[in-house]
Amino acid sequence: MAEQTFTLPDLGEGLVEATVLEWLAEPGERIERNQPLVELETTKSAVEIPSPHSGVIVRLHAEEGAVVQVGAALVTFETEQAAGIVGTVPREEERPSRRVRLRPPAE
């Protein structure tokens, strides 16, 4: 288990800050990677930011309506296991689902 803090990324086009419109997840909630995390508004547009990690949200660093600078902390996750720089750790069902049933051969 490790805490990972996600900072407001460089939004491009010279934008230096963004306003938090709405958090789409709350502290204590488990979120999957790429699930919608927060809606931000810049002077250019409103964008939905997907979660960069899978894990439990520990802290939100900005209230709704607050202005966040690029590089400032946005949210802290507790992640189970980082896959590395690319990809996700595969999850395995305890009991895989199946539809095909077999009939044993005649002995």
């Binding site: 896959a83 690319v86 990809g87 996700t88 750790v89 595969p90």
Partner: peptide, 9 residues
């Protein structure tokens, strides 16, 4: 495959 990585991975 198996880790939902991007292309070439």
């Amino acid at each position: 495959g198996g880790i939902q990585a991007p292309e070439h991975h």
